[in-house]
Each structure stands twice: as C-alpha cells, then as structure tokens.
Design a binder for these strands. Structure first.
Lengths: 188, 188, 188, 188
DNA sequence: CATGAATGAGGGTTCATTCAT
DNA sequence: CATGAATGAACCCTCATTCAT
C-alpha cells in the first residue's frame, strides 16, 4: 500500500495545497471541455498532475468540484454585471464561451438540488439574472412577459445545445439559438 | 403436432426473432423512461426477458437500438402529421410525452451523425418539421422568420430540459419552455 | 472495456458454471486457510482461476461465499452425526480440522445475523449441537448444567483460538483448549 | 512574559511530545472500543487531535501503539493484583471491561510474537496470571488441574467472544462464558 | 438462432505512509 | 519536533462484450 518506490514527482508538501486546488479546477475545465462530461473523475487528477487522494481531499465528490469550477464563473459574472452596461446578450455571450462547463454544472445542479453549496450558487446565479432582467425591462429592450426564470432556462438550453454540438458546428448553433431567444424575449 | 418440449421460456428458437426485436424496443422505451439514460445496457435485455446475446444480435450497439426506438416514433409522427390538422404545438406535445427517449436519440444523433441509419432517420424527422412549418406559416400562425431548423432545435431543447428535470417539476418546466418557444415563433 | 485482446484462457461457456461455483468454494477454503480472513476478495477468484465477474455472479458478497463454504461443512456434519455414536469430542475434532473456515463463518454470522441464509445455516448447526448434547447427557457423559449454547460457544472459541495461533502451535493449543472444555462439561 | 502567539492548536512545539503520546493512547482506546479494530489507523490521530506525522513518530506501526495501550492495562493490573484479595474472577471482570482493546492486543501478540516489546509485555501479563493461579489454588478455589496457561487462554477467549458480539448481547455472552470457565476451573 | 454465464478492463474510493514546511 | 497535505497502490465492484452450448 505505500508507494512501492519513489516513482517520479514526490510529495511537494502542504505548500502545494492551494496550487493543487487551483490546478484541479483548471484541469476540470480543460478535461470537461475536451472530452465531455463522462470522463473518469480520475482524469481530472491526472490532468492536474496531482494524486487521486489529493483530488478527493479537495473535492470529496464530483459535485464539489463542479461547484468550485462554477463558483469562479459566477464570481466573474457578478463582477462583470455589476455595472449598468451589461445586457442579456452579454450573458449569453458568456454562456457560449463556457458552454461545456455550464452544462456540467446544470446537470449536477439538477442531480443535487438539495446540496446547500449547490443551492447557494444557483441563488447567486439567479440574482445576476434577476438584475439583468429588471434592467433590460426598464430599458424597454425585452417584453414584460419575460421572467428571470425564462432567461435562466434559456441559458441552460443554450449551454447544453452547444455542449452537444460538434465543435465545428458550434458557431452556427450559437447563432441560431440566440436568434431564437432574442425573438422570444423581444417586446411584442 | 410437433413435439412442444420445453414450453418454459428457454430457447424459444428462431421463431422468436421478430418478437424479441419488438420486445427489446419496448423494453428500451420503458427502461430509459424509468431509470434514465445511464442504465446498464444489459438492463434492456433483462427487461425484455431476452438473453444478452439476442440483444447484441439485433442491435450491435446502443446507437442501433436508439435508432430502432426512434424509428417507431418517427413513423408514428409521419402518420400523425399526414393530415392537415397538425400544428407545431402538437409536435411539442409529442416531444413532451417522449422526452427521455427523445433525448437519448438526440445525443446519439450528435455522436454519430455519420452513421447512415441515423442520418436517414434525422432526415425523416426533419421532413415532418418542414411540412409543419410550411403549413403553419401559410396559416399565419408563425412568423416568417421561423425556419425548420429553429423548430428542430426547439424540439431538442425541450426534450433535454424535460429529461433533465426531476419528474415532479416536469409539468412546470414543460409549460415554461413551451411559452418560451411560442413567443419565439409567433408572428411579429 | 472489452477484453483488450484474447488474453489466455477465454470464455469456457455456460457449462463452466457449476464447476466455477465449486472451484470458488474450494478456493475460498484454501485461501482463507492459507492467508487468513483478510485476503482481498478477488484473491478467491484468482485462486479459482475464474474472472472477478463470475465470483460476483455466484456470490454477490463475502457473506454469500462464506455461507456456501460453511453449508458444505454443515451438511457433512449433519450426515456424520446422524448415527448414535458421535460425541461432542467428535464435534470438536471437526472444528479443529476446519478451524480457519469456521472462524470466518462465525465472524460473518456475527456481522450479518439478520441475513436469512446465515440464520438458516446457524439453525442447522445448532440443531446438530442440540442432538449431541441430549445424547451425551442421557449417556451421563456431560453434566446437567451444560446447555447447547455452551457447546456452540465453545466451538466458536476453539475455532478462533486455533485460527489465531501460528500453525506450529496449533496442536498444543487444540489440546489445551479441549482439556479446558472437557473439564467445563464433565459431570460434577 | 514570552510571546504566546498562535494559542490555537497548530504546532504546539516540542513540549507537546509527552502530552501527544498520552492523547494518542487514550484516543486509541476510545476509537477501538467505539468502532472496532478496523478503523483507519489515521482515525486515532484525528481523535487525538494530533497530526498524522506525530502518530507515526510516537508509534511507528500498529503494534507499537497496541503495546503502549496494553502496557497501561498491564501496569494497572499489576498494581491491582499486588495485594492478596484479588481472584481470577476479578481478572475476568477486567477483561470484560476491556474486551475490544484486549482482543486487539491478543491479535497483535499472535502476529508479532517475536517483537521483544510484545514478548516482554506478554511475560508481565503471564506473571500476573501465575500469581493469581498460585494464590487461588492455595486457597482451594480452583482445581489442581488448572495451569496458568489455561487461564491465559480463557482470558483471550473471553475477550474475543465479547469483542465479536453485538453490544446488546455482550452481557449475556459474558455471563455464559464466565460460567463456562468457572466450571472448567473449579476443584473436582 | 437464443441463451446466459464468463470474462476482465476500468473507474471509484480508501488509506498507509512520507515529507515539505 | 508537530503538522497535515500529498501520494498512489490496492481493493472494490460494475458492466460491455464474447462465445460455448
């Protein structure tokens, strides 16, 4: 059960902790984007150049890792939509850019809606959307029939559709989907 | 009278071929609807009351089985939309009723768009949509901006969103999504 | 996920089923006796020359395997004690001969006393003891204070003590323990 | 006054050495009694509120820890049986109270009978038993056939039987076993 | 042509042990 | 000298696929 030998990169010590955590999050992003959501969990550790045990220490399960990944996204998003200039279109832009990770998160949210960490994150995301919708409605850029939950749902659909498409088709898919939602949201 | 030995359920002989095929398709529908898309492939055989070998004989891989399942759906759909009374809303109704299987099919289509059987089936589905869109547009029930591919995409989004939702939430999700697409398609 | 190649001994077909089952039981006996109770479960499969999957098919968990092993012992025991000549000493002889397996069974019984298969087997064993105790008491070879449960407990203690001892010490341990129990059971 | 920075619980410095040692021994007692012998070794460190490294520094392996734990028991026992009033029954009382830890020790003794620390401890325990047996025999409370090794063996059997039993059954098991040994040891 | 057992690679998770700080 | 994160081998179990009967 101990490492049979001292094979290669050894214990870098506790100092490596935060770096490992960050590496794991980055690796998760890359691996999900490259190989989809069904990669072995351990592939994340391998990609991060980190032992299996460290992966489990930092993120006891898939959900925890997804939460960490998405937490960065949401934080970015909050900062980015803090000002008054952001629109729903900007939100969809971001979704397009993060489609695969977003889909992973949405799947996990649906599977673990009771997990408090997940719920909290979902709440933060919804807050962003609420603010955007209010602002856009006030500006008359979207119809009164549009609710925040409609935009949230559209966000999920867009992400999923992109994650599903072959990379070559993504631009076209994104364009079509966004036209669809623009039509759905526009004032009547 | 031929000897009818072994009237149990073992080897029912060659005559069982077509019956087995049908049983497998039905079983696939049930199993996917009940337990989602991640059930072991072998669960289909068990549910159908058929040996593993027969499953593989009839359907060499998951795609082949999904194609067979969806083929029945498309055939139904073609028959059902042959007349003049069917609308896009009716199409979405059917999608709602078959959400989980539809999602499976969509995933497989995306993963095997080169498989001729898949392509053919996709073509048939698209034909149905084209006809519907033409008719609805002629009737002035949808806007001129709506293309068949928009409806196809909406179909996939709806199915996926439903397959993803917890069973208890499906009614609400379906309602919201359909409102969204109605708004997107309505004449301006 | 499929066998990468056709590496070595391939599928011997369903006919190998019963033989595999028997081989697994025999292997379990050997492995437990040789390496104690903490061997990896998979070692049994390896020793039997059988795939992991087959082990799990025949015996879904450790308990099921232990039950099967001990079932043979109990059946033997029942047959052997059917006549009138058998004594408690003979029972202890058998325990000595099967010490390690007996210990495994006792441990599992204690861990899964609710498992019906385990309970049934325990009941059969107790029956044998009850018969022996009645007969011995009638013959005046043991005291009236001796209950079947005392003998059952002694049986377990003897087995465990032997399983624990180094092989070289077993004869001495067996001798001492049996003297101890003989003293405990003898008429006053 | 020296700077007492970091009064939390991190690195308490060299002074914590003996305290840690004692905490680990106490933790081992608790953890084994509570969760049995198969807890992760690291659980002891966690329970003691001490780093993994300190556990390994003080006790390089499981045996070393078990020896330390049992050493306290034996020392207590020696003190307690120094006077003239103690009986074998008192010894068994103590075993009952310490069943799980005793079992752990017995297993380790059997696995490492060559380890000098283990041997020494075993010797001390045996000394206690020898004294008790002599005294009890002189008092006519046990038969001449009883040897110290018989009592030692009974001790181990009792501990094991208790450690094995479900907590709810322990009282009954203890009662039956002690009756058995009393019968075995009583003068003829 | 059906059956269903056999196979074994692979992914999940745990935990003994080491070692940088 | 304490800390506690890092490591990775090992075990568990599942399930896709094959193939003797």
């Amino acid at each position: 059960m101990p490492p049979t030998k001292d094979s290669g990169r050894s214990n870098r010590g506790p100092a490596a902790g935060p770096a490992n955590r960050a590496a794991l999050i980055a690796a998760a992003r890359e691996v999900y984007a490259a190989d989809g959501l069904n990669v072995p969990f351990s592939a994340v550790a391998k990609r991060a150049g980190v032992g299996q045990g460290s992966l489990y220490r930092h993120f006891p399960d898939r959900t925890a890792l997804a939460v960490a990944v998405f937490e960065e996204n949401v934080t970015d998003l909050e900062e980015d939509t803090a000002g008054d200039e952001r629109t729903i279109d900007d939100l969809l832009d971001r979704v397009v850019a993060q489609a695969v990770v977003s889909t992973a998160f949405i799947d996990l949210i649906n599977a673990h809606r009771d997990d408090p960490a997940v719920a909290h994150l979902g709440g933060r995301f919804r807050e962003v959307v609420v603010r955007l919708v209010e602002r856009e409605r006030a500006a008359g850029r979207i119809g009164d029939h549009v609710e925040a939950d409609d935009v949230t749902m559209a966000t999920g659909m867009l992400a999923t559709e992109l994650a599903r498409a072959a990379p070559a088709d993504r631009a076209e898919v994104a364009e079509r989907a966004r036209r669809l939602f623009r039509a759905a949201f526009s004032p009547r």
